[in-house]
Design a binder for these strands. Structure first.
Lengths: 205, 205
DNA sequence: TTTAAATTTGACCATCTGGTTAATCTATTT
DNA sequence: AAATAGATTAACCAGATGGTCAAATTTAAA
């Protein structure tokens, strides 16, 4: 029973996750989710009272997973360069397995900005940066990163990783026409991105 | 009369544009658009037969505008560096005025990949690159751009410009907590981005 | 085996939504 | 001023959609 409980509820949750990611909150239909899980629509409301609650459950889990992927950077005992390489390798690999996640998250954050606070509140980014700064005090002297340009740097890193997936349909379509392969392009980006950034940040002596 | 015709049809088109960008195709309601334009809902169907047709009209115009912003790069008589600076200045300025466009476009392309071909087909990107290559044959020798890394380079440029707007809610929320101002960050990005890229591409002699 | 609780379902409902239609209003033409 | 064509509206419709409910079925406890 408890066994079966979890199976049904999990099946619902997983189906909801797939359908919501594919169609978004507005585009998803409760019937689709029920069909996808092979159950009656009323069961959705039995486990999760409303569409909103179901969506919230799905979204919070996904957003959590996504941000967890950033965490290891702060405790791994690596040099800054190695951390950058580590991040791009891990993060892009994760998105290769979940290519539709980025756009889904950006989109639902945009449509309901209230959600962001819940996720962002949990993180003390100032502290995170202070830790990072302390860990690499000497190293940082060789790079063009100042208090003023942290946002520029951070969003550049995030963008180089996320943007190819958020814009995948457009990029893939253009590349196909030019004779490039999108998957290979992604694979190469794991190295290209950190190389690019490290090169950009190095102070010209 | 013809005068009034245009006024009504334009009013509808503009209202539709706003509502579609704000809520997306799925989230937008014909009634919202009618209300926004201050007219009866039936009038929408009088001028544009269906929601799909109305959306298509809006989307094609927007996508067209967006891509036109990339065009000047290919005929302006500037150095590569200057073209990069020109692009970021113009493109980011354009998005400052239409901050919700990028996510809207990415989203609708994702939801209906068929649309992309219509837009992409019109552009012969191979030829565009050949032109660009010929224009800057000498200059390119100093940069780390090869046939193989063109996609990496192009998407990096696009991403550095577009990503901050696509992820604006998240970025702005985090920055607010860190004491940075999003608008100022965007303003500074017009220079930071080309600087960053040029630095990254310069061959270490 | 009986009983009670939890799970699953089919049928149903109120509301919303895109779309239609017949009638009214407006303006131009004759 | 009458007629005609186009613009605008109120009322309406069929189908979809989120959600409910009582009945049926399964599972666990007694």
């Amino acid at each position: 029973m408890t066994e079966n409980d979890k199976l049904t509820e999990e099946k619902i949750f997983e189906s909801a996750t797939e359908v919501f990611i594919e169609k978004g909150m507005d585009g998803a239909r409760m019937q689709d989710i029920a069909d996808h899980a092979g159950i009656n629509k009323a069961l959705l409301h039995y486990y999760y009272r409303t569409k909103d609650r179901l969506f919230n459950a799905v979204f919070e889990k996904i957003a959590g997973q996504m941000f967890k992927k950033f965490a290891p950077i702060f405790d791994e005992n690596l040099s800054l360069e190695e951390k950058l390489r580590f991040f791009f390798r891990e993060h892009i690999t994760f998105m290769q397995k979940n290519p539709k996640l980025p756009l889904f998250i950006l989109n639902e954050f945009h449509r309901n900005p209230g959600r962001i606070r819940k996720v962002v509140q949990k993180i003390d980014i100032n502290k995170l940066w202070t830790v990072l700064e302390a860990q690499h005090k000497e190293e940082l002297k060789n790079y063009n990163i100042t208090r003023e340009t942290i946002p520029q740097f951070m969003t550049t890193v995030a963008g180089m990783s996320v943007f190819p997936f958020a814009a995948r349909p457009v990029i893939a379509s253009i590349m196909e026409k030019m004779g490039y392969d999108f998957d290979q392009y992604i694979e190469e980006r794991k190295e290209y991105a950190p190389d690019f950034i490290i090169n950009a940040l190095k102070k010209q002596v």
